[in-house]
Design a protein around this nucleic acid. Structure first.
Lengths: 187, 187, 187, 187
DNA sequence: GATGAATGAGAGTTCATTCAT
DNA sequence: GATGAATGAACTCTCATTCAT
C-alpha cells in the first residue's frame, strides 16, 4: 500500500467511523486525506470499493493477530479466550468503526455481501477452535457452526453493553463473556 | 390508525424490508401504498418519522404478544422460552425487516436513537424474566443486565444462522438456542 | 364582511406581516384564523386573492381617514401634513405589513399589479392636494405627478429610517419630513 | 471571477430580473448559464448565496463608479448630482433587477439582511457628500442621516415614475430630482 | 357554510462519478 | 500519479389547491 493509498485508507476509516457509510462523502474523505477527490478514484473504483478494502484489511488484521497469539497455545479454551480478548479490544478501541460494520452487515449491496463473506471466514476460524475443544472432550460436538455464530453474537452484545455502560475493563468483560459462553446462565 | 395511514404503514414496512432505509424512496412508498407522495407528508412528518412509527408499533406488538403468552406461566424458564419463540418466529417471518432494523441500530440519527430506546425497553422485559429465574434460584443472580443483552445477541445470531442455512424449524432452533443460553457450550 | 371572513382577514394580515407573502402558508393562515383550510377557499379564490383583498381594504381605510380628517381643512399644506401624519402613523403601527406591501410592489403577478393600481389611486389623492397648493400659489405648478411620487418616496424612506433607529416620535418625524418636502435640503 | 462563475452570474441576474427571486429556479438559471444544475452548487452554496453575491458585486460597482467620477470634483452638489446620474442610469438600464432588489429589501432572510447591509454602506457614502455640502455651508447640518435616506427615497420614486411613464431622459429626470432634493416643492 | 384528507407538480439540494488537463 | 471543475440523476420535502362529505 503506497503512501497516498494509505492516506486515503486512514481517512476513510476515520470518516466511516465518524459518520457511517452513507453520511460519509467522497469530498470529506478526500479532505481528510489531504488529496483531491479525483485521487480517490485513481486508487479505488468507488466509495463501495474503499469500504470493501477497509473491511478486508481489517478482518485480515484480526485474523493475523489471533493466529499469532494462539499459535503456541495448547488449551482450546485459552484460544477462545484470546479470540474474545482480541476482538473485544479491537471493537472497543475502534467502537465507531465496529458499529459502522454492524450496520453494513445486512442488505444486498456488494459491500454487504463482501462483509458477510469475510466475516464467515472469521466464523470458520472460531469454529475451528470450537472443534479442537470438542475433540479434546471439553465441549459437546454438537452444532459447532451455530455455536460459532452464537459466540460472535455474545461478543457483539457484550460490546454493545460496554458501549452503553462505558465499561472498558476488557479482562473483566472477557471473563463474564467467557463464563456465559461456557456455562450459559444456568445455576 | 385510519385506512390511509395503514396503507402507508404497510407499504413502508414492505419497502424498508425490500430495500432498507436508505434505498427506500418516498416515491416508491407512495406508489406501493397507492397514494400520492404528498399524502405521506400529510400523515407523517418525514421519512424518518415513518420509520420511527413502524419501529414503535412493531416492538409494541412483540411486547404485547410476549405479555399475553407469558401472563399465565409460572416457570420463568418457560417465559424465556416464549420470548425466544416469539422473537424467532417474528424475526424469521419478517426477516427482511428484522435486518433493516439491525442495520439502523447504530448511529446518531433520530430514528437510530429511537430504535435503541424501544429496544432497551424490550431488554428490560427480558431482564425481568431473568430476575424471576434468579429469584427462583434457577440461575445465578449475577450480571442480569449483561445477560439480557447476551440473550438478545444469541437470538440474533441464531436468526442470522437460520437465514444463511435457510433453516426454518423454529422449535428446533429455539431449543438449541435455549440450550446455549442455559448451559453454554460447556461439557 | 361576515364573521368568518373577518377572522380570515385578520389572520392573513397577521401572517403576511410576520412572514411576508411567500413564507405565509394557507395552513398557517387557517390555523391563525381558527378555521379549516378549506374554509379559506370558500371565502377567497386563492392566496393571491386574500392578499389583494387586504390591500384594497387597507388603502381604502387610509383614504377614508385622510378624507375625513382633511375635509374641513382650508390650508393645503395642512392637508399634506395630515397625509404625512396618517401614513406615518399607519406605517409605523403596522410596520411589518407595510414592509410586506413594499416587497410586493414590484413584479408581474396579479396581486402586484393590483397593489400598484390602488397605490396610484392614492398618489392621485396626494397629487390633488399638491394641485390645491399650487393653485394657492404655495408651490410651483410644475411636475405635480412626479412630486406626488417623490412625496411618497420621502415618506417611505422616513419610515425606513424610523424603523432602523427605532424612532417612534411621529410628530417629530412628520415635521422633519415635511420640512424636507417643502424646502429640500437647501440652505 | 472565472469563466463558469461569470456565466452563472450573468444568467442569475437575467433570471432574477425577469422573474424575481422566488420565481427564478435553479433549473432555469442553470439552463440560461448553459451549465448543469450541479455546477451552480459547485460555485455557490445556495440560491440565496448567488443572490447575495450579485448584490454585493452590484453595489460595489456603483460605489466604484461614483468614487471614480467624483474624485476630482470640488463642489459637493456636483457630487450629489453625479450620484443621481449614476444611480438613475443604472436603475433605468437594469430596471428589472432594480425592482427585484427593492422587493428583497424587506424581511428576515439572510439575503435580505445582506442587502440592507450593503445598502446602508451606500447610504453612508451619500451621507458623506451631504456632510461635505453642510461643511461648505450649502445645506443645513441637520439630520444628515435621514436626509441620505430621503435622498435615496426620492431617487427611487423618480425611477418608479420614469418606469410608469417610460420617461428615459435621465438628465432631465436628474435635474428635476435634484431640484426637489435641494429646494423641495416650496415656492 | 365549513371541513380536512388527499393531491402532485415542482422546488432546492446532494453527491458519487467522470474526464480533460 | 494527481487534480478539481463539471455533471445530472436522484432525493426529500413543500404547499396551493381540490372536492367529497
Amino acid at each position: 500500500m503506497n503512501k497516498t493509498k494509505k492516506l486515503i485508507f486512514d481517512a476513510s476509516i476515520k470518516s466511516f467511523s465518524q459518520k457511517g457509510f452513507h453520511k460519509s462523502t467522497m469530498d470529506e474523505i478526500a479532505d481528510m486525506a489531504g488529496v483531491a477527490k479525483g485521487t480517490l478514484y485513481y486508487h479505488f473504483k468507488s466509495k463501495e470499493d474503499i469500504f470493501k478494502f477497509i473491511i478486508d484489511e481489517g478482518v485480515k488484521r484480526i485474523e493475523d493477530e489471533i493466529n499469532e497469539k494462539t499459535k503456541n497455545m495448547l488449551d482450546p479454551v485459552n484460544k477462545l479466550r484470546a479470540v474474545c480478548e482480541i476482538q473485544m479490544q479491537l471493537a472497543i478501541n475502534h467502537l465507531e468503526f465496529f458499529k459502522t460494520m454492524l450496520s453494513q452487515l445486512w442488505g444486498d449491496e456488494e459491500r454487504q455481501h463482501q462483509l458477510r463473506n469475510v466475516l464467515s471466514r472469521y466464523f470458520k476460524l472460531i469454529e475451528g477452535f470450537l472443534k479442537e475443544a470438542a475433540d479434546d472432550g471439553l465441549i459437546a460436538d454438537d452444532n459447532l457452526e451455530i455455536m460459532a455464530f452464537n459466540f460472535f453474537g455474545v461478543m457483539t452484545s457484550t460490546v454493545v453493553y460496554s458501549l452503553i455502560h462505558k465499561e472498558k475493563d476488557i479482562s473483566q468483560l472477557t471473563e463474564t463473556l467467557l463464563g456465559f459462553v461456557m456455562r450459559g446462565i444456568g445455576r
